[in-house]
């Protein structure tokens, strides 16, 4: 339910902020929500990326015709990730398996940490893109890849030292 609520929030923002292709945005959002709900209900994890794609497509359609970079895209991106993670958790969850409270707390903390770091990276990315719009999307994408790679290397080193 939480996954659906998070995705619904992101979709609501997409539709509310949509321009002339608002109906297309709404359709993408509804399809995304339906796919996610179906995937959770049927315990079918392959629907999750399609739900994210549909919702992301709806957001992209809503941005059609707007030149300014949307700062809320950072939040929408993290919301899509959270929805995907929560839906995966829901599908994986087996009531017969007793989960220790410490493991549950750590999993929640991991998810929260991931969302926080992703939010930070996104704000940095969008801030950079807004300041140097002339640098282009290619440079932004390369920057994201480099930032993500750096985070991965740091985590790997931290893991091997522990």
């Amino acid at each position: 339910m939480l996954a659906l609520a998070v995705l619904a929030g992101a979709d609501a923002y997409s539709v509310a902020s949509a321009g002339r292709l608002a109906p297309v945005s709404a359709v993408g959002s509804v399809v995304g929500l339906a796919l996610l709900a179906g995937g959770i209900a049927l315990r079918w994890p392959t629907t999750i990326p399609w739900a994210v794609l549909a919702s992301g497509g709806g957001y992209l359609a809503g941005r059609e015709g707007r030149a300014l970079v949307d700062g809320w895209a950072a939040v929408v991106g993290v919301a899509l990730l959270l929805a995907s993670e929560l839906a995966t958790w829901s599908i994986e969850h087996d009531a017969r398996i007793r989960t220790e409270p410490a493991l549950l707390a750590r999993r929640i903390a991991t998810l929260a940490g991931l969302a926080g770091v992703a939010m930070l990276v996104n704000f940095l990315l969008l801030g950079t893109a807004a300041v140097s719009a002339s640098a282009g999307v290619l440079l932004a994408a390369v920057g994201v890849a480099a930032a993500v790679g750096a985070v991965a290397v740091v985590l790997r080193l931290a893991r091997s030292s522990s």
Partner: peptide, 10 residues
């Protein structure tokens, strides 16, 4: 650039 922001968390 917004699409990069949507993708970056994944």
């Amino acid at each position: 650039p917004e699409l990069v922001a949507l993708t970056a968390p994944f």
